[in-house]
């Protein structure tokens, strides 16, 4: 009984090599196929299947086609609202980013533990979210410098800054600009991890209190279980919102690169 009640809320984030590929290497670096890899692949496949189902190209769309078109429309509208007509060329990237994160978030929430599988949320790892944030930030830098050359640095001096303030403002703006990839990556990682830990902790309350006896279950277990149901709904919302925020902020940053101010 004692071992059953011991629930480690962090264990769900453990990366485990699979298919005996522990020591798979490329140029001396370990590239083991892990549970994280597998869930990235599942998300990618699910995303491919989802978009493929919407490619019937009918004039009058069916439900599936309508769903896919509403997602591309969402990204298209977001880019047009934030960047303008120039923003349409980023639709493939932002769409891939948004949908990949969204599928990763939602697939990681599936209650697959019930049938003995171990869901894994790769967006709860800052290695993953960090790389995605660095890619977005890298695109901003490349587009910014390619389009505006060294003029891109004027991004750090807002309009109407008094001349004596320029050096200080430049440094402050520079720091806030450089922090962007960190905030972008950490926000998603923290949001996903916090939700999963919370669910795990509450579920450990339910299991622990039910093992301790009926009266504890009634006092602690049932309220925790009810709270879990609410938090599950909240987590589905957070999964969508965080993916949207990541895509939205990337497009806002891209706007800086495209249009400076």
């Amino acid at each position: 009984m004692a071992t059953e009640a011991k629930v480690d809320p962090m264990h769900q984030f453990t990366i485990q090599p699979m298919f005996g590929t522990d020591h798979l290497e490329l140029l001396g670096y370990n590239i083991a196929i892990t549970n994280s890899t597998v869930w990235m692949a599942i998300s990618a496949l699910a995303l491919w299947a989802f978009v493929f189902g919407g490619m019937k190209r009918q004039l009058v769309p069916g439900r599936w086609q309508m769903a896919v078109e509403s997602f591309t429309g969402l990204i298209d509208d977001m880019l047009e609202a934030n960047i303008g007509k120039n923003g349409r060329k980023y639709v493939p990237y932002i769409f891939s980013l948004f949908m990949f994160i969204l599928f990763g978030n939602i697939l990681g929430l599936l209650p697959l533990g019930v049938i003995g599988l171990h869901p894994f949320t790769f967006t709860s790892h800052f290695t993953v979210t960090g790389i995605l944030a660095i890619i977005s930030f890298g695109i901003v830098l490349i587009v910014g410098f390619a389009k505006h050359k060294l003029h891109f640095f004027s991004l750090f001096v807002p309009h109407g800054t008094p001349v004596p303030m320029i050096p200080i403002i430049f440094v402050v703006e520079m720091i806030s600009f450089m922090v962007r990839p960190f905030s972008l990556g950490l926000r998603l990682f923290v949001a996903m991890m916090a939700g999963h830990v919370l669910l795990e902790v509450l579920s450990s309350f339910v299991i622990g209190s039910s093992n301790a006896g009926m009266q504890y279950f009634a006092i602690a277990g049932i309220p925790s279980f009810i709270l879990m149901i609410g938090i599950c709904a909240l987590e589905i919302l957070v999964a969508g919102i965080q993916a949207y925020v990541f895509a939205l902020l990337t497009s806002v940053y891209l706007n800086d690169a495209e249009n400076l101010h």
């Binding site: 090599p17 590239i31 493939p92 769409f95 790769f122 290695t127």
Partner: peptide, 23 residues
Amino acid sequence: SSQIFWLLLIFGLVFFIVGKGMV
């Protein structure tokens, strides 16, 4: 290294096949 490698590979595939090809 495994996380970065597979993320770049899989996200790259998503970008080129889904993002560039299908969207």
